[in-house]
Amino acid sequence: MKRALTGLRAWLLQRLSALVMLAYLVAALLRLAADPPQGHAQWQALMHAPAVALATGLAFGALLLHAWVGARDVLMDYVKPLPLRIGLMTLLVLLLGGSGITVLRALL
């Protein structure tokens, strides 16, 4: 548990997740520039295409992990009282978890 998501693993995870997000962003911008969806129906069709839904899910997964590592680092640096830190980390987990569930529901 000690090394669950600290040290090298957390550092590596933050860099890899950044690469995933960058790749998604570039691919999404290229796709939208090449053939911009017209109206709600086309947007829905695009986002529910299996490849797009998978890539979007991956990118949001990467975003949530990236945000967790980064925000946890900020809390570890600035919030010294342990109960307050644990409270804020719990809030963060709820916020990120809630965001993840919302994205999943939208994609599925």
Partner: peptide, 8 residues
């Protein structure tokens, strides 16, 4: 050095 604080 491989923990949350010492290096990272």
């Amino acid at each position: 050095l491989d923990d949350a604080y010492r290096l990272f």
